[in-house]
């Protein structure tokens, strides 16, 4: 907080009225942005400026603003969630930018994530992948065995947690040159594959989730590794490899 100062910036932001119309990049100038502001607070400030001049504010997805809900997206200056590593856009602060900078703000670009308006995209394809198999088929009766009845090696529990830390923001798809969703799917497959509770239906899970992923129009993985670098939660490529193994074993079973 010691570094607080104000900067003036130029913004080039994608504007698109709705899914059916064509969009374009518009240019804005915004003065007196505190470097302590988050990137989204900067957009709030711009929107306030737009509203005060009776213009339509920029629509963007956001909710928790603490890096966990996965709602915020934005391709900022050529990178998903902007230049800082392992943060979401809401955790990106304006101290990452300099006075006079021009900042490009674009929506995620993927056939499976069509633009709804301005910077908002439709990520329900992720939900459908989850619905295809991202669960353990256990009813919610509570009449399951005691939580400690099945020990889980700490190493496996920790790896499962790391995979489960995915926030479903879609940065992996957005940064992948192929628009592939393998990191997202790999993380979910891995979480369950690593836990004894998930192993029972591991075969069907991986086949169904991959089938749904392909149907949604995501691209293929070519192991460039962009997803891992841009993932705000540091989900490892190991999870994609694990999914590849799971899929291989499931296919030959």
């Amino acid at each position: 907080m010691a570094s607080n100062k104000n900067i003036n910036i130029h913004l080039k932001i994608w504007r698109q009225k709705n899914a059916k119309t064509k969009g374009s990049i518009e240019t804005y100038k915004l003065d007196n942005v505190s470097t302590d502001s988050s990137f989204l607070e900067m957009l709030d400030q711009l929107n306030e400026q737009l509203i005060n001049t009776q213009k339509e504010p920029i629509a963007f997805d956001h909710d928790c603003r603490e890096g966990i809900c996965g709602a915020c997206s934005l391709y900022i200056n050529g990178q998903a969630h902007g230049p800082a590593s392992q943060v979401t856009t809401c955790q990106l602060h304006m101290r990452s930018f300099k006075d006079g900078d021009t900042i490009y703000v674009e929506p995620w670009r993927s056939k499976a994530f069509p633009v709804i308006k301005d910077l908002i995209v439709d990520r329900s394809s992720f939900d459908r992948i989850q619905q295809a198999g991202g669960f353990v088929s256990v009813n919610t009766s509570g009449n399951t065995i005691d939580a400690n009845a099945t020990p889980v090696p700490k190493h496996d529990a920790d790896r499962a947690f790391e995979a489960a830390a995915c926030i479903g923001c879609g940065a992996c798809v957005a940064s992948c040159k192929n628009g592939s969703a393998m990191l997202f799917v790999g993380a979910k497959v891995s979480q369950y594959a690593l836990l004894p509770q998930g192993k029972v239906e591991a075969t069907q899970r991986v086949l169904n989730m991959v089938r749904q992923m392909d149907e949604e129009g995501f691209g293929n993985c070519t192991n460039t590794g962009a997803c891992e670098v841009e993932c705000p939660k540091g989900i490892s490529l190991e999870n994609i490899a694990r999914m590849n193994r799971e899929y291989l074993f499931a296919s030959i079973k």
């Binding site: 509570g142 065995i145 700490k154 489960a164 509770q197």
Partner: peptide
């Protein structure tokens, strides 16, 4: 119990 059965990865100790 329910959450563990669902595959919620709670923290565990070295004994599992």
């Amino acid at each position: 119990d329910q959450c563990v059965a669902q595959g919620v990865p709670f923290a565990r100790d070295y004994g599992g």
